[in-house]
Design a protein around this nucleic acid. Structure first.
Ligand SMILES: [Mn+2]
Ligand SMILES: [Mn+2]
Ligand SMILES: [Zn+2]
Ligand SMILES: [Zn+2]
Lengths: 138, 138
DNA sequence: TTCTTAATTGCAAATCGTTTGCATTTACAA
DNA sequence: TTGTAAATGCAAACGATTTGCAATTAAGAA
């Protein structure tokens, strides 16, 4: 947690109450959360939704959180470890929205081939899996 | 094109001016288009944006178009061939938004393994590649 | 510790993509 | 030709996100 605030300080950003609280929430949650969910999880409902949005934007540009998009329109955020680049994928239940973290990734050789074949540089990917979780299969 | 109207008729949906025009546009464009882009491409600007949205919704539930999400918030649509299920992916330039159609797909064995390991059924995936296209590399 | 100031916040209004209610029009089968 | 369900236009409603602005505050300097 102190390493998180350290990263903020290093870029001359203030360590404010809302930010510390948001980082706590993200730290305590293993899965992507929407800005609204973060706000709801915040103790004492003490900051504005706009502040959550602004915080997520800042943390994202600092590489401290990753943004994900599942089936609904809302963005979801997950904390990224200090060294880690945070790249990974999810398996989402189309019925209950339950999320499973996935270790597998798109094969790098294939991605390299795609990049080269089309002359694109710095190619990355967004990949999410969708299906029906055990609980939702009747 | 007649097979498209046929699919509409088969479900007792009317073949209206706007719908025919929208199908023309989609047929003429090889890449995903936003509702707004479709409206702009429409001859004589003759239908309402709400009608485009309603049409895309209908065509999607009929399996005639596929919906995609790239980096911005807008949904994009592509026509699906009659027999085809339309599943495929794109390589999008993060600078100019140029799109390349990609033939490669996420390896099925790995997806099966992911599904089985987590007890999920009917697992599918959404996968898009992002990078810098040749023109945007200076 | 107090001062100074740029960074941050709350609040409300604005934006953007998308949806919806409703009165009016229209495709098309009988 | 006619009856009727389906489709449309228009404007208002929506949900997520952004932004302008005046008031507040963290944190380095003095
Ligand atoms: Mn995750
Ligand atoms: Mn395509
Ligand atoms: Zn990956
Ligand atoms: Zn695929």
């Amino acid at each position: 947690m102190s390493d998180l605030t350290g990263r903020l300080r290093r870029e001359s950003r203030k360590i404010t109450g809302p930010r510390a609280a948001i980082l706590e929430i993200l730290h305590a949650h293993p899965h992507p959360l929407t800005s609204r969910e973060i706000l709801a999880a915040l103790p004492k409902d003490h900051c504005d939704l706009a502040t959550v949005y602004r915080s997520m934007h800042l943390l994202e540009t600092m590489g401290m959180v990753k943004r994900y998009h599942f089936h609904d329109g809302a963005a979801r955020f997950e904390l990224v470890g200090e060294g880690d680049d945070g790249h990974h994928h999810h398996l989402v239940c189309v019925n209950c929205s339950g999320v499973v973290e996935i270790a597998e990734c798109f094969p790098d050789e294939i991605q390299k081939r795609i990049a080269q074949k089309n002359g694109y540089k710095n190619v990355t990917h967004k990949l999410e899996f969708f299906g029906t979780c055990p609980d939702c299969q009747r």
